[in-house]
Design a binder for these strands. Structure first.
Lengths: 243, 243
DNA sequence: ATAATTAATTTGTCCGGACAACTTGATCGC
DNA sequence: GCGATCAAGTTGTCCGGACAAATTAATTAT
């Protein structure tokens, strides 16, 4: 049998993608069911599911057991945040809406200890929330904030935070931030965050870890942000400086 | 039938992951074949393949038709590049080894035109290469460099580049770089780059797009870098500045 | 001893089937 | 009209099988 240029499932995935891009299936609508795809393309359910798996991986569709397959993106939409200074970062924080979902005190595990430069087991305040552009919009980021728990006012106020806050940093009067250290890497969405972001677990995301230091060089808080998918772009400029 | 806490394939994947992490299967060695996993766990080949798909997605293993399943990572290894200035960027370029694999002149497509701020169809010099820490090491990055083709010396010299170069920017005496614009986002490895990076296609990667401007604000070259996996960390600090 | 050929092994692709789990819609009882 | 229950629809998980494609090992020929 002469080889085909690519697997059947890939061809079907490509055709479905084109259909979505051309507007045959709009965002928010349901794709044909697995059985309908089988009939339309004359393929088995396994092959149909492989094709849909490709589109799921590409984050164009989202599949829900019992509900069907929904189109969640039809074109490459990128939202771009230009952050080159602490001011940019704070402005970005002020322009987006952070909803705190949970607040707790926990003992630091390995990762948190490394992040906060403390011993494993140290008691830490942990806030968990999601960030969105506007109220009611789907979140584009999940955020975990950590601070070594102490008897200081800031730790106590962090524990009291709930609901929607805009400029968390300003809200809490953290004090003058002297420097922010950032680590940016690709990551995969943990299962526990996938649901609140409306993305498949293990799907691609951008992870930005920030550690906020005061002007005296003391670590105030650390935050881990997960931006699902490939749309979120972190932009900044490097200037040539003479030393 | 009472529900199990998680799917069989996930349990098997977790067990295999633990075996890898504990050293039962070391990096570079082969995992048991699909049939052996079926027999060991009393599962079907479909379920075994699903389990292996999970580990593939986590980039712990790599599967080759006819060869078997090789362990490529057993623990979380992160390599961290701190780049906060043009100097850092150039130093980073100098400290790593760029191997040019292809050089060509092509008409700019939509993406390239947007990158270089020129019309679609404009003739562009394109260099394709991979970057590694040391000679002989597996590449950790794939790089595509673009410049609007002209009769200028730089365009001609770009076309002549081949083999291994270290500091491409220095090599070509691009001239004083005044500014570098950077866009960082999560992405997925295109199929055509997966092989040379030794990773599965569509797997997670960090995409860093840089546009180099001279001191007069003129765009010199643009580069798109893909860092596969979640290990590559781009670090930089933001300083508080008074306005 | 070496090269070519063949066989075996292994993963990739595709098929069909069955049942679980979840969601949605229809029907019945109050 | 509303709530509870049931049926239908849909995706998720698991099974078994077959053949293709790629790689490796064994065998054969020189």
């Amino acid at each position: 049998m002469p080889p085909i240029s690519k697997p059947r499932y890939q061809s079907v995935a490509d055709q479905l993608r084109r259909d979505i891009e051309k507007g045959r299936y709009r965002v928010g609508s349901l794709l044909p069911t697995e059985l309908q795809i089988c009939e339309s393309y004359g393929i088995s359910r396994h092959t149909a599911r492989e094709a849909l798996r490709v589109l799921t991986h590409d984050r164009m569709i989202e599949r829900r057991q019992g509900s069907g397959t929904m189109v969640i993106a039809n074109s490459r939409q990128r939202f771009n945040h230009s952050i080159s200074s602490v001011q940019d970062l704070l402005q970005y924080g002020a322009n987006t809406r952070l909803s705190i979902k949970a607040t707790e005190r926990i003992p630091a595990d390995d990762d948190i200890a490394e992040l906060l430069e403390c011993d494993v087991g140290t008691e830490v305040v942990h806030l968990h929330g999601v960030r969105s552009e506007h109220k009611g919009e789907a979140p584009f980021c999940v955020t975990d904030i950590y601070r070594i728990a102490g008897k200081d006012a800031l730790s106590k106020r962090l524990m009291e935070v709930s609901g929607a806050v805009y400029a968390l940093v300003d809200e809490l009067e953290i004090g003058h931030i002297g420097m922010v250290e950032q680590d940016i890497s690709a990551a995969q969405i943990p299962a526990e965050n996938a649901a609140e972001l409306g993305v498949p677990k293990h799907s691609v995301c951008l992870q930005i870890t920030r550690r906020y230091f005061d002007t005296g060089g003391k670590l105030i808080v650390a935050a881990v942000n997960l931006h699902p998918g490939t749309d979120f772009v972190y932009s900044m400029s490097l200037k040539q400086s003479r030393g």
